[in-house]
Amino acid sequence: MIELVKSILPAPSKVSALVRALRSFALLRESGVGMVGAGLVLFWVIVALFAPVIAPFEPNAQLLPMAKPGTAFPGGATFWLGADQLGRDILSRIIWGSRTVLFFAPLATLCAYTVGIIMGLAAGYYRGKLDEFLSFVANAILSFPVLVLYVLVISTIGPSGINIVIAITFASAPGIMRIVRGLVLDLRNRDYVAAAQTRGESSWYIMLVEILPNARGPLIVDACLRLGYVVITIGVLGFLGLGLPPPDPDWGGMVNFARPLAIVFPHMTVFPCIAISSLILGFNLLADGLREISLRD
């Protein structure tokens, strides 16, 4: 969304926006916590990008059921983290699973932000009846325990990647809308907004070009935190058997699948748990770092 906004800015401020963005990432170096977070996220991004190169096995190949960690496979490769009950290499599945989660989590977050920002901008800028209506709908959705909402929606429309994105958008957009609305209520009285109004700019131009870029700070921090939540959500749905359809690896699904054997083969569940926790930790630390910097500005 932010990118989209930038691309329609006039040339001079486009440069400045870019510079500002770069500067804030450079600033991240000053936050040790933020750097660790960025490092963790970057690690998984690289793993996901190079999955075909790194993974020792094909993630769905059924090779050696219940292999313990470190077992060598006749082909020369080793099951560093063992294999599951269908004989699929756990390390390879974790590596390929990072693709799944790093595709669906940002996608779902992006969708939620698109919807949430549009709702929030409209509610905050137009206020009045529209605001009341949107706020009421948002309250209704938010008053419902979020996981319950996921379970209900997914078990009704069926588990699939696109349905998970829809469910997450549906459940997260109201929260984003609230934040955006609050920011807009604050920003809409600024001089530059009044100036644009006098120039006769259209409402959506003012919302997207004048207001939104100035609200980006808190939104970026929130987006990082929300990415972490979405990773948890995808994991939990997989764990409850409502996740992405097999056979493609998904971390939560791996835990669920191997749990009946946990007593004898803890490696089947513990490693995917570590993977998912480290990615969430990455997003959370990144959000902390960004918040630290934005407070310093």
Partner: peptide, 25 residues
């Protein structure tokens, strides 16, 4: 602060699995 951020990053299903592995099995 660091401890809180780490514990918050472990989803419930992960800690349920880890705790069961340790304390039950």
């Amino acid at each position: 602060s660091q401890i809180s951020v780490i514990t918050t990053s472990i989803p419930e299903f992960a800690s349920a699995v880890l705790f069961s592995s340790i304390f039950v099995f």
